[in-house]
């Protein structure tokens, strides 16, 4: 019964506030009720009213009514504080399993300032931000990354109790955000396939990264460059210090192979993840082979990200 109600509520919310990368909080999307403090305030007002009645005191009546009116006027203010606020997903950096994923949000104001906007997932500590008039405020929400693959950030609660804290205006927003979670790196054996297979040897040759085999051209001298490679002829012509640039040839680069490992799929992916990171750190070109997928030998950040992505999404549809 409870479950059913919850589902219907979620469906209704989905219709009313459909997931989107940016959501403007409009009238249809904001709900407002008194907080517990508001109820206590109402109780206090009731007591004051009783005092006014029993003492037939006009001023006590007046103050009671004044505060009650403030309560009612605060409905408009609390609602206004949230209305018109624009929430936008501002991307997320991929993380490894076990880390806290950071989702960035942008709060934009098109006209007036919005004070003390609290954001968060139910059951977690909310973050509070002020958005200046026609300004932007950024906020990072963390979400535990428990499984590799895409991590969907669910509905987010946006609320505001400003100015008096007697009322809370809130909305549930789904910014359609997802976060890529890489496998957890696990230290272990190097799942090497001899990259020096004869047939691969020739084909695998690529001019990649700095090396010493193949002359690529001249580049200006940077401290740390080998003195042996200085292009003295150019120097004598007054063209400044130039070094001869050579590119390394691949072919003996390590191949990280899923099949070379044994054990649980997740465990294997974790090991591969560790080595992808290790080799990238050493700036050593490597290749990655997963069942049905091959990432050719390369180095650099882009290669690393592509490998990690492949590991993260291995076996998941899409």
């Amino acid at each position: 019964m409870r479950q059913q109600l919850k589902q219907r509520w979620q469906r209704w919310l989905g219709r009313r506030i459909p997931p989107a990368a940016s959501v403007r909080l409009s009238q249809r999307r904001i709900f407002i009720v008194p907080t517990r403090v508001g109820l206590a305030f109402a109780l206090a007002l009731l007591l004051m009213l009783l005092t006014a009645i029993n003492y037939q005191n006009s001023l006590a009546y007046a103050l009671t009514f004044l505060l009650a009116s403030v309560f009612i006027v605060a409905i408009l203010h609390t609602y206004r504080n949230l209305a018109g606020l624009m929430l936008k997903a501002a991307g997320a950096r991929p993380v490894f399993v076990g880390e806290q994923g950071q989702l960035r949000l942008r709060l934009e104001s098109s006209a007036r300032a919005h004070q003390a906007i609290a954001l968060g997932w139910p059951g977690t500590a909310y973050q509070t931000r002020d958005v200046p008039a026609q300004g932007v405020s950024e906020c990072e929400l963390s979400l535990p990354a428990l499984r590799r693959g895409w991590l969907r950030a669910g509905r987010l609660r946006v609320e505001s109790r400003f100015p008096l804290g007697l009322l809370v205006a809130w909305s549930w927003v789904d910014l359609d955000q997802a976060l890529l979670v890489y496998p957890q790196p696990l230290e272990g054996e190097l799942p090497l396939v001899a990259g020096a297979d004869d047939q691969l040897d020739e084909q695998g040759m690529r001019a990649l990264g700095p090396g010493s085999e193949d002359f690529q051209g001249l580049k200006s001298y940077q401290p740390g460059d080998s003195k042996r490679r200085l292009h003295w002829k150019a120097y004598s012509r007054g063209q400044g210090l130039l070094v001869k640039d050579f590119a390394a040839l691949s072919g003996r680069d390590p191949w990280l192979d899923f099949e070379a490992l044994t054990g649980d799929v997740e465990l294997r992916l974790s090991l591969l993840c560790h080595w992808v990171l290790q080799l990238s750190e050493r700036q050593q070109p490597f290749a990655l082979r997963l069942p049905g997928q091959l990432l050719a030998p390369a180095s650099g950040e882009q290669h690393r990200d592509a490998c990690l992505r492949a590991l993260a999404l291995f076996g998941t549809p899409g």
Binding site: A62, L66, S69
Partner: peptide, 16 residues
């Protein structure tokens, strides 16, 4: 807030 509440307060005062 108090100022904005005054009209409503007067109404309540007169009619309550």
């Amino acid at each position: 807030l108090l100022l904005q509440a005054v009209p409503l307060m007067l109404l309540l005062f007169v009619f309550f």
